[in-house]
């Protein structure tokens, strides 16, 4: 099967989902699109099931915390790979702090199970419909989500490593 270009892939995506898939960019050649939690399972499922695209391989799920983005504080990032066409796509969705619920991708891939547990463990993203959403790497009785930016690694009062000492 021939290789699909990012433009063709984006055209197919917008033909299928319209403006529910937005903000398409291509950082370093990897097509990145943004969607919403209402659409995410439809989008991923369509990418997986489409006869031509066949994004059958879930590479990774992770999250990023952007405390400055009002209403879009937590980003959940999916990397999916079509082994047939050898093309990757990155799908993002953003959640607001205090309402970090998004449907689980375990209905599509078994492998999403631990990836989502890890994301929950470090960012507190609540994947609804996940069969076993527990902490995975941290201790069970931990009360915080340590990868969020409000938990600094070092003493926050320490000033010798602040950026303004390094010319920025």
């Amino acid at each position: 099967m021939g290789k699909i270009t990012n433009e063709e892939l984006l055209q197919k995506l917008t033909a299928q989902f319209g403006d529910k898939v937005a903000n398409a960019t291509e950082p370093y050649g990897l097509l990145t699109v943004e969607t919403t939690r209402e659409q995410i399972i439809d989008v991923l499922g369509w990418l997986k099931e489409d006869k031509e695209l066949q994004f059958i391989y879930l590479t990774d799920i992770t999250a990023i915390h952007y405390p400055e983005q009002q209403g879009k504080e937590v980003g959940v990032i999916y990397h999916v790979h079509s082994l047939v066409n050898n093309i990757r796509i990155r799908v993002k969705l953003f959640l607001a702090d205090g309402d970090v619920n998004t449907p689980s991708a375990t209905v599509l891939w078994h492998g999403a199970n631990w990836m989502e547990r890890e994301t929950y463990d470090f960012f507190g993203v609540n994947f609804t419909g996940h069969p076993d959403l527990r902490r995975i790497l941290n201790v069970d009785d931990m009360t915080v989500y340590p990868m969020r930016k409000e938990y600094p690694l070092e003493d926050p009062n320490r000033v010798d490593k602040k950026d303004y000492f390094f010319g920025r």
Partner: peptide, 8 residues
Amino acid sequence: ETALSYSW
């Protein structure tokens, strides 16, 4: 099929 579903 199983291996791919588990992202092996």
